[in-house]
Design a protein around this nucleic acid. Structure first.
Lengths: 333, 333
DNA sequence: TTGTAAGCGTTATCAT
DNA sequence: ATGATAACGCTTACAA
């Protein structure tokens, strides 16, 4: 079997507690025994047993990362966040454990922490029901919502700044001379949508432009939604000169609709998406978008959950991270 | 604190060992006490402590998933594999723990298993040095290489069938009438490259077509490599009528080179990639490619590692999974 | 500075 | 069918 503290202790003829202390950097060990212990540990190939240590310490140094599969079709999004999160975790001597919690009960989430599998978790869902949030708060388990703001004042989250991003995007369109700007919206399911929509409206108001209801097309969350939306807009007697699509996939579909009708982008109509998926760079024309700082979102979420784990009674951590406008061909030729 | 076996035992006035047995489905407990225990466990909200159980059982029911960051720029690849792996793990009462092991020593890999953080691990690297493989084998830690074949006869791997995929792709090009087919290769770093290259050569031979050295362009692994390769091929006095790019990113770059020269795809030159990244669907024209069964690769790797964990002395599991040709516009208009 | 010993929450062996 | 108890490997009062 593997080498344990006891082996070192016997090998050196000193007690296990001294070995443990030496290994864990306590200061009540002589310099000499410390280095002796450390060296034998190395030569013997000693590795502390994670479970034993966890059991004793009452923590796992593991962070749950709970995602639902629906998310993963946006693989750019998902992958980069994971990478950022994993790296941040490791730098803090923690690790990420993956869980797919497909619309499961909050109960099974509690399970994770209560079974002391992880010390806390990061929720990566496209929508976190209010009841779930409240249950988690009541159970006092450390958690952080990643990627979207949450309405509850006590819930922690790390999210992109959708509002400012959408504002910047609108400004970009204004700067290019657009005044009739379409917006593809969706059934509101939370603040991600609302923030972008509100920014659209505020930007118009601030530019002294009217809000024109028929320029706002509601799409369902389904494939081709952008395709239909674009067609609806182009069918208008007086179509917009630019379209702000709720996100990149919608924009890509919208682009196809335009191309099929022989409507040129950006000459006849400008088009922009949101989220900064890599896909939007490879279409022809490439699509202007607003990039989320995905790696950073992953990283900050880890920092946040580590804080929550340290002391879950602190005020919640609610952070929106700045996003970046990526002007591309679909708006500026 | 949380509910433990002892609480149930005291609550019911029976011993902890009986409770444990009832909970774990041993058959030497009366039906009556069993259901009694199960019910109280539920009402009290009992969750077995993972660390205590792990310590006692000597295993963790966790699988390490070790990736290096270089990989993650292929986010499609990465994300879908992770999803497949996570789901498969959960269905077998295991979980995936993420580790980024950026070119680290094999030592730190051993660490994972020897510290009993995980029972075994899946290696997701673009290249696994031979020395590393041998060290892992010698240390007798359960591991599986994901996504690429490995030369060592005792190493387990789950990989796409690059050879048959490349063969199918070549056949597709033959069927379209191509006889002069370019290939962008790369400094050989392992079987992934060799399999595709070998298939290219074998396909030519089987079709009684000559292998023409100047049609094979070596690219470096770097951005724009495909761009340069395509230019090299188009500069030939007698350029190929079709190009098989080593993988999708290379193909995308190659496409750009062609477009910039006014060379039309597929009319003037057909183009195909490999791997089936989603990106290749959104370019104009969309790029013919060979899709890896990513979800399945993730899943099968989990099955494989679970087998290794069960008994690491069994013969290695070496599996290539069938890939799927996706004919698109870049070859057939 | 070092050692002794209790305890973390389970599971498994052996009695009863 | 049930219970007492040791053991898993570690950390940490507390004693020496």
């Amino acid at each position: 079997m593997s080498v344990k503290i006891k082996d070192i202790s016997e090998h050196l003829g000193i007690s296990v507690s001294t070995v443990s202390k030496a290994l864990n950097g306590y200061d009540d060990v002589s310099q000499q025994t410390r280095s002796l212990v450390q060296e034998t540990a190395r030569t013997l190939g000693y590795r502390a047993s994670a479970s034993a240590r966890n059991l004793r310490r009452g923590r796992t140094d593991k962070i749950g990362f709970v995602f639902n599969n629906a998310l993963t079709f946006i693989s750019d999004y998902f992958a980069e966040i994971i990478v950022g999160a994993t790296a941040a975790a490791e730098q803090n001597d923690n690790n990420i454990v993956l869980y797919t919690n497909e619309g499961d009960s909050p109960d099974s989430l509690l399970n994770l922490v209560q079974a002391r599998e992880v010390d806390g978790f990061i929720l990566v869902w496209n929508h976190v029901p209010k009841a779930m949030i409240e249950m988690l708060l009541k159970a006092n388990v450390p958690f952080v919502v990643l990627g979207r703001r949450v309405r509850h004042p006590m819930a922690s989250y790390i999210a992109p700044d959708n509002y400012q991003g959408a504002k910047a995007l609108m400004q970009h369109l204004f700067d290019l001379g657009h005044q009739r700007i379409g917006f593809t919206t969706r059934p509101s399911m939370g603040l991600t949508h609302e923030d972008r929509y509100q920014a659209y409206k505020d930007a118009l108001a601030e530019a002294n432009l009217p809000y024109i209801p028929e320029l706002v097309v509601e799409t369902k969350i389904e494939p081709l939604s952008g395709y239909h939306a674009m067609n609806t807009l182009l069918d208008l007697p007086n179509p917009p000169t630019a379209v702000f699509a709720f996100h990149d996939f919608v924009a890509i579909d919208a682009q196809r609709a335009a191309l099929e009708r022989g409507v040129r982008i950006p000459e006849d109509i400008a088009l922009a998406g949101f989220d900064g998926l890599r896909l939007s760079l490879f279409t022809s024309p490439s699509i202007t978008t607003v990039a989320q700082p995905l790696n950073e979102i992953g990283r900050e979420s880890v920092y946040a959950i580590l804080e929550r784990i340290k002391d879950n009674s602190q005020p919640p951590i609610q952070k929106t991270l700045p996003v970046r406008l990526l002007p591309r061909q679909s708006t500026q030729g």
